[in-house]
Design a protein around this nucleic acid. Structure first.
Lengths: 253, 253
DNA sequence: AAAATAAGTGGCTCTGAGACATTATTTATT
DNA sequence: AATAAATAATGTCTCAGAGCCACTTATTTT
């Protein structure tokens, strides 16, 4: 259903063209951003879900997203950050664009696309708020490649893709550090890797690898537990992700 | 500039909601797909460019792309394939979604986003045709992280990102095989890797790595050159990409 | 004081990359 | 026909870092 372009433009200047531009020449798909926001809670991965207030998929649980607001948002990432901050208060998460899904049928309102972002947030930074458009918000535990319930639209498959991304990157990067609290022990970090990869690792290899990457700094403090105290580390550069030249494998757990 | 949603929907069913749905509640950004189509020509990487027939950026060189046609295209990748086939006739390329750029200012017509695909095509499969909207089409040689000329909109930066993607993947995958003709020697494949990574590799390591991946099949035939003939190989599975567990580095060339 | 447990180290093997010398197979030159 | 030149292909060593696992250390519990 295209309308006709409004004039023969052969002799127009670009300025004239733009002054006459009719944005409805092509019907546009709707454009949104969805965030898969992951955190660590009770030694389990959790994803943030909101319960939709409005149609379509009213009262279904969905990822944290929304339409691009062409007045408010300078770019795609701004939409992602706006939605993220609206629900969690977190301003500076690890945020990575994963992919974009766009199909005729994924939304009953018609052709729609959504740019999917993966956000990793340390749980202590989060302040949940349902906010506009949501009647509830909660952390849902990850089981395998998703959550135990159906999600709105194609959000289950989006979540699945993001978990695949997290897991494949954990094999050759330091990505999981972005789930950690400000200070943590190497054993705690290893447990997070083991959780993400669902695989046990040798602690000697793990220590060698992480310390060799030169991304951690000793705090000098020790974690007091019921056993031998462990060194507490913090990130040297909390914004960056380290890429190893070899994969870590571990064994099936 | 939002219009008001058309009715209080609290008691509506989803069907009623959809029957009344006004898609202009939010103004939508324009949505396009752009392909970075790379091939190997005269032992150099080339990218396919078209010269724009219409405003904006009239007569500027640009990537092969266009708006999503919500009637024609089932999904984003269909748009990418449609545009690719329109210009090159290639139906089954290696095609990978790289990322999506969307900003207020990248297109003078207003907020726009484009899903960027990287296509690798063996040169012998290509049949160039300018087609509608283009007054010229050509292969432009890659120099460093781009081409020697300015491109329309933000296409220079899109091209740069795709080259980064290709180069980083060449370090740990068999991706460059998708640039090869149906049969090729290991030395020829190594030259392509060296071209992509701009780095010389040890041929023993390279052979070990490629043969160990079990993705190549001897054809039995030999390439007749002015020197010792080399074994010709073909891909075992031309659609897949192999992931190595260790990076290849090479030395600066 | 001994047992239990988690933190952390030592030191081996194994895989695959890097380096580089050597051998093999062809054409061109004499 | 013998030799030179060039590229294809192999042999074999070193090296880095993962996997493995026993051992030592520091702490609490019994």
């Amino acid at each position: 259903m295209k309308k006709k372009q409004q004039a023969s433009e052969s002799e127009m200047s670009e300025k004239e063209f733009l002054d006459n531009y009719d944005p409805s020449v092509f019907q546009r798909p709707s454009a949104a951003v969805d965030n898969v926001i992951l955190t660590l809670l009770d030694d389990e991965l959790h994803v943030l879900l909101v319960k939709r207030e409005h149609h379509p998929a009213k009262e279904a649980w969905s990822l944290v997203g929304g339409f691009i607001d062409i007045d408010l948002d300078q770019d795609l990432e701004a939409t992602a950050r706006r939605k993220l901050q609206e629900k969690t208060g977190v301003k500076t998460p690890y945020l990575e664009q994963v992919y974009t899904v766009g199909t005729k049928g994924r939304d009953p309102r018609g052709w729609s696309l959504t740019a999917v972002y993966l956000a990793l947030v340390p749980h202590h930074k989060v302040n949940l708020e349902a906010g506009p458009g949501a009647i509830d918000i909660k952390w849902e535990k990850i089981k395998g490649s998703g959550v135990g319930k159906k999600l709105a639209f194609d959000h289950s498959s989006i979540l699945k893709e993001c978990l695949i991304r997290l897991r494949s990157k954990a094999v050759y990067t330091s990505l999981p550090v972005h789930l950690m609290p400000p200070e943590f022990t190497l054993s705690e970090l290893q447990s997070v890797y083991e959780l993400v990869l669902d695989s046990k690792m040798d602690h000697k290899s793990f220590r060698r690898r992480m310390l060799g990457a030169d991304i951690l700094q000793e705090t000098g403090k020790e974690k007091k537990t019921a056993r031998r105290p462990a060194m507490l580390y913090k990130l040297k550069n909390s914004k960056s992700t380290f890429f190893f030249t070899r994969n870590i494998e571990g064994q099936q757990s």
